[in-house]
Design a protein around this nucleic acid. Structure first.
Lengths: 196, 196
DNA sequence: CGCAGGAGAGAACGCTCGTTCTCGCCTCAT
DNA sequence: ATGAGGCGAGAACGAGCGTTCTCTCCTGCG
C-alpha cells in the first residue's frame, strides 16, 4: 500500500480544488476519483465517507490559509505594519484568478443548515482568524475592540470581492483599517472599553 | 384556477423558509409541496423548473429585504442618523432566532460555481445595497469612498453574525461606522479622493 | 342530470450520487 | 513457479430528487 498519508493528501488536494470551485454538493465522489487518480475503493478505505473527506478538506484549508497569512505578516516588523499586511495579503488572495470567496463561508452557506460539524469547523476557523488579528492589534497597544472591527472589514472584503469579482475591496478595507487605527491611537488610552 | 398570483406567492413564501434555513440543494420539490400546500402538478405549472423557483425566491427576498431596510431607515431624519440606522436594523435582523446569514451570500457559496444566474442575482442585490448606502453617505456630504467602507463593515457583520450566532457584530460595525464618519467629517473636504 | 375539463394525490420514470461488490491482474513469499 | 492477497476499473445497488404521468374526483355548464 503506497503511503497512506501521501494518498490522503492527494485525495484532499484534489477535493479541495473541486469543492472550492464548484461547491461541495455539486461534486461527486466520481469527480474526486478522476481528479485524484485514486480508485473509489481506495478513497473509501482512506475516508469512511464523503462527509469525512469534506471535514478533512476544511481542516487542511484552515491550516494552509492561516499559515499563508502568517507567513506574509511575518515579513513585516512593526505591529502597525503587520496589521496592514493582513489586508495586503487579502488583496493578493482576491487577485487569484480562481478566487471564489472563503471556503468556510461558502460551506456554511451550503451546509450550515444541515451539518453541525461544518458549522463548528467554520466557527473554529473564524475564531482563529479573529484571535490572530486581535493579537496583532493589541500588540500595537490598541484595544481588542478595534481588532473585532478590523475582522468585520476583512470578512466584508472577502465576500464583496467574491461576489463582485474584483480585488478592490481589499484596498478599501485597508484604507478603512488605517483610519480606525488612527482613531484608536489618540484619546483611547485613558478610559478602558471593558470589552473581551 | 384560484389566483395564479396568490399561489405563486404561496409557493415562493414556503420555498423561502426552506431554502433559507436548510440551503437550496438540500430542499426537494416534495418539501416545497408539503410546506406550500400546493400539488407538484400545480407547482410545475406555476414555475417551469426548480431553478426558476429559486430565482424567484431570490428576487422576492431582494425586494423585501431592501424594503424592510429602507422602511427602518426612513424613520430617521438626519442623514447621519440614517446611516447609523442601517446598522441598527442589522442588529434587529441578526437577533431573529432563525437568522442564518445573507441568502445571497449563502446561495453564492452553494451555487455560484455552477449557476451564472445565481451569481448575477447576488451581484445585483449587493450592488443595490451598495448604491443605497453610498447614497445615504453622500447625503451627509461625505465621499462615496466612505460608503464603500461602510458596505464592507455591514457585509462583514452579516457573515460574522451568522457564523458566530450572535448579534454583537452589528454594534461593533456601528461603532466602527461612527468612527469612520467622524474621520471623514474633518479634513477630507479640501483634497478630493477621486474614487468612483 | 350528464359530461367534459381541470385539479390533487401520489405513483412512476430517469438520472445522479454515495457506497459496495465483482472480477481480473499484479505482486511477492515460500 | 504458484497460490493467495491486495489493488484498480468499473459495474451494481439503493436511495433521493426533478419532472411527468395516471387516475380519480370534483366542478360547472348544457
Amino acid at each position: 500500500m503506497p503511503d497512506r498519508e501521501a494518498a490522503q493528501d492527494q485525495a484532499i488536494s484534489a477535493a479541495e480544488d473541486l469543492f472550492y470551485s464548484r461547491g461541495i454538493q455539486a461534486v461527486g465522489m466520481d469527480a474526486v476519483r478522476d481528479a485524484s487518480g485514486l480508485s473509489l475503493k481506495r478513497l473509501y478505505q482512506l475516508f469512511p465517507s464523503k462527509e469525512a473527506l469534506v471535514l478533512q478538506f476544511l481542516n487542511r484549508r484552515d491550516r494552509q490559509w492561516r499559515q499563508a497569512l502568517a507567513h506574509h505578516v511575518d515579513t513585516h516588523t512593526t505591529p502597525e505594519e503587520q496589521v496592514i499586511a493582513v489586508f495586503e495579503w487579502l488583496h493578493t488572495w482576491f487577485s487569484k484568478p480562481d478566487y471564489r470567496g472563503c471556503a468556510f463561508i461558502n460551506s456554511f452557506g451550503e451546509l450550515g443548515g444541515i451539518s453541525p460539524e461544518v458549522v463548528a469547523q467554520a466557527r473554529r476557523h473564524k475564531q482563529a482568524f479573529r484571535d490572530y488579528l486581535v493579537a496583532l492589534v493589541t500588540a500595537t497597544g490598541r484595544p481588542a475592540t478595534l481588532g473585532d472591527q478590523l475582522v468585520l472589514l476583512a470578512e466584508g472584503a472577502i465576500t464583496t470581492a467574491a461576489i463582485t469579482g474584483t480585488s478592490q475591496p481589499a484596498t478599501q478595507a485597508r484604507d478603512a483599517a488605517r483610519l480606525l487605527m488612527l482613531a484608536y491611537s489618540r484619546h483611547d488610552r485613558a478610559h478602558s472599553d471593558g470589552s473581551q
